[in-house]
Each structure stands twice: as C-alpha cells, then as structure tokens.
Amino acid sequence: MKKKSHFLRGLVHGIPIALGYLSVSFGFGIRAVNGGLSVLQATLISLLNLTSAGQLAGIDIIAANGTLIEMALVQLTINIRYSLMALSLSQKLDASFSAPHRLLVSYGITDEIFGVAASQKEPLKPSYFYGLMLMAVSGWVLGTFLGAAAGELLPAAVTNALGILMYGMFIAIIIPPARKERGILVAVLIAASLSILCAKLLPMISGGFAVIICAVLAAVAAALIFPRPEEEA
C-alpha cells in the first residue's frame, strides 16, 4: 500500500473515535467551564493531554487549588496504563518508525487509538498513526471547545445518549476477535468480571488504577492458559 493510502485508512478508522471523543469531550468542556476555567484553557488542556479520565481529575485538582505534586502523582496513576499500551504497540511497529516518528506518535497513544491500532493485522506505519491521530485529536479538541463555549444549548436527552458512544465502540472492537479466539474471550470475561467486583467491593480504588489491575490480572491468566503460538522469525 502507498503512504497516502495508509494515512487515509488511518483517517477513516479515526472517524468513530472522533465522534466518540466529540461527545465525551463536549461533556468535559462543560465541566471545565463550570469549574472556573476559560474556554481557551479548557481547549488547551484537551489539545495537550488527550486523555479523558486524567483531564477530569486534573480540572478537579485545579478547582481545589491542589499542589503540583498531587497533580503529577494523580496523572501518573490514572495514565500509567498508556505505558503498557505503548510497550504493547512498540512490538507491532513497522521498520520505518524512526525516533522522530516515535516522539510524535507517543502523543497520540490513547485507549481508543491503541485499541484500533493494536487490532490491525499488519505492522503499523507512522502515516497510519498520523491519520488516526489527526481525526481523533480534531474530535477531542473541537468537542471540548463546543462544550465549553455552548454546552448548555444541547438538550440533556442528546448528551446523555451520546455518553454510551465510546463504549459501543469498545464492544465493537472486543467482540469479533473474542468470537474467534478462546484466549481473547477468556481475557475479556475475566477482566470484565474483576472490574465489576472491583467497582462493587473496592470502590475506593480510582477508576484508572482499577482498570490496570483488572486488565493485567486477566491478561496474565489468558497468557498462562492460552499462550500465543511461537512466531516465525
């Protein structure tokens, strides 16, 4: 495939992510402005961070006048999952991924971009990532701006229904491969069960942290029961 078609494919795969981000970041924009930030500040946070849970926690800390250490530690805890995703993605990169490409693409590693990129069969090219990122970041930043500037104008019935969009996308990523591979099915079922238990029994564990624990335990179990076949060199 030519370079341009990889970029285009990235853009197309980014559309559902962008639509999901648009609705989620819309909610973030509303909350940021209610918390005392300006439209510009809210939009800038979304452009620079590109992460939902971390940003929400971040604006709470700003609103509460928390310390910078607290800000750093909370971001580290909530977002450490991206390190795992980055590590996982680093195993799937095409040979054309030089250091500058890695520095740029790092910025765009989110749950959704990771989910879509990791489910691709062939090695990942930088241009594919740039397409995905351009679309996703546009949705995230635009949604924040719109929510911050005009959030109250949309009826609640619409914003509520938009809340499920991202999860619908996750389900669409998980289910087809889980039907084909036992290992994935087991990883998904264990992770979901642990996550429910965690939310019910240990509500004091923050959401980001709980996801890491449940996902790693589930993936360890799946890797032990269903190890992947050896790759040909």
Partner: peptide, 17 residues
C-alpha cells in the same frame, strides 16, 4: 508476548464494564 497481545482486549473490557 502473549500478555501484551491480550492486554488491549482486557483493558477495553475492564473500561467498558
């Protein structure tokens, strides 16, 4: 390698439910 292969699906499942 198996662990890293399963992690994305486990992460998405734990985030969804």
């Amino acid at each position: 390698r198996s662990l890293l292969y399963y992690i994305p699906y486990a992460v998405l499942a734990a985030m969804t439910v």
